[in-house]
């Protein structure tokens, strides 16, 4: 039976709660309602109110209480109703959680799950990709799964990790993708990228929902005789620089793709890493395909123009291939 991306997260969370009595969920409308996207549907009935804690509309309290419980040895999994609202708990995450281990050797083993991303007509406040707010804060790990398999394996690793992990779930993938998952327990290591399609002419480095866009583009380009390798970062912090550089060594041309906006996006860090490490292997300029530097627009015509898609990737990839 195949499992959707959403069910995969739900299963991972459920199994971890079964495995470890210290794991509990906390967030808005996660109990009886099962969460805005229904990731925790049925959890309250099964695990009870002690382990499925409904909160008032208080993101700072959700983040702060998770930190407090984490310091006491529990393993909270907090849910932000939408990733956009994580800013309401920002201080707790970037100043408290991120710096405890460094300052006074106190681990904060928390996971903050956040549905992020556009393509659902959500407008400026229900579509953002806020991962870079955290990527540039030392002390936090940042995970962005693209597949159901990785979503399940990574949520488990995140829960077992002894550092604060920001877990961004792309909400457009929740019910769109599915695959058969192993029945036995498995994890996916945090900090390991994956080559999801092998190729020789050009590498596309990406993560999250854009992995599917890259694969779609690669398929079209293959028909034109262009062999594209697709690397799914899976984790942004820690960043698997080795896998990225290895792919560049192999193809010598690289296109960096993300749904997040351009300036200060992950592509900048990747481009710097590539030039620092494998500059002499490059046969062309490093190319970026990203959203432009604007808020996420609501109207469909604008949102379509805003979001990267396969056509935009193909156009740039063709140019780079011919370079």
């Amino acid at each position: 039976m195949s499992t959707t991306y959403l069910e995969a997260i739900r299963e991972g969370l459920w199994e971890e709660m079964e495995r470890d009595p210290n794991v509990f969920c906390i967030g808005e409308d996660i109990g009886e309602y099962g969460g805005a996207f229904k990731v925790t549907a049925g959890f309250l009935e099964h695990f009870g109110a002690r382990r499925v804690v409904d909160t008032p509309i208080s993101e700072a309290a959700i983040a702060g209480a998770s930190i407090g419980a984490g310091l006491m040895g529990l393993r909270p999994v907090a849910e932000m109703q939408f990733a956009d609202f994580i800013s309401c708990g920002f201080d707790q995450i970037v100043n408290f959680a991120a710096k405890c281990r460094y300052r006074w050797n106190a681990p904060v083993p928390i996971v903050i799950r956040s549905p992020s991303g556009g393509g659902i007509h959500g407008g400026p406040f229900h579509s953002q990709n806020p991962e870079m707010w955290f990527v540039r804060t030392p002390g936090l790990k940042v995970v962005c799964p693209a597949t159901a398999y990785d979503a399940k394996g990574l949520i488990k690793s995140a829960i077992r990790d002894n550092d604060p992990v920001l877990f961004f779930e792309h909400k457009a993938l929740y019910r769109k993708i599915k695959e058969d998952l192993p029945t036995e327990d498995y994890t996916v290591p945090i900090g390991k990228a994956k080559v999801v399609r092998e190729g020789t002419d050009l590498s596309i480095i990406t993560y999250g929902a854009m992995v599917w866009t890259a694969l779609e583009a690669a398929e079209t380009l293959a028909a034109e005789g262009v062999s594209v390798e697709v690397v799914d970062l899976r984790t942004l912090v820690p960043l698997d620089r080795d896998t990225v550089c290895e792919s560049v060594r192999k193809t010598s041309k690289v296109l960096l793709l993300h749904e997040d906006t351009r300036t200060g996006g992950m592509a900048g860090e990747l481009a710097a890493t590539i030039t620092e490490t494998v500059f002499e292997y490059l046969d062309g300029p490093i190319v970026r395909v990203t959203a432009p530097d604007t808020p996420v627009p609501f109207s469909s015509t604008l949102e379509e123009a805003f979001l990267p898609n396969a056509e935009k990737v193909i156009e740039k990839a063709r140019w780079l291939y011919r370079y």
């Binding site: 007509h121 407008g123 406040f125 808020p295 627009p297 109207s299």
Partner: peptide, 21 residues
Amino acid sequence: GRDGNMHMGDMDAKVVSIISA
């Protein structure tokens, strides 16, 4: 078209737009 539903305002009418938060 930049935003939807009640996320709107107009300073000439002295109505300030909400954000979602």
